[in-house]
């Protein structure tokens, strides 16, 4: 494989993760919040921890995008 082609494959791998990392970050945030609400605190804190961790998940998604835009080797 030539250098150009190899570089293209690497970038293809990198950028094919963007959409998935956004979606799964949000899902994992909501999942952790829901688990804390329902299982750990037994539903007493019901909507709040889910909401807070939803926010954290969205923040994690955008942090991933920001880190990718800041990378030196691209």
């Amino acid at each position: 494989m030539s250098d150009n082609r190899r570089e293209m494959m690497r970038l293809l791998g990198d950028f094919s993760t963007i959409g998935m990392s956004v979606a799964f970050s949000i899902f994992i945030g909501v999942g952790i919040g829901y688990w804390l609400d329902q299982k750990v605190f037994g539903g007493r804190t019901s909507p709040w921890l889910t909401m807070i961790f939803l926010g954290l998940g969205v923040a994690a998604a955008f942090k991933n995008l920001y880190m990718m835009s800041k990378r030196k080797d691209l």
Partner: peptide, 11 residues
């Protein structure tokens, strides 16, 4: 945030 983004890698 870091914990969530590391767990999202598995998925």
């Amino acid at each position: 945030i870091e914990l969530i983004s590391h767990l999202a890698r598995i998925l």
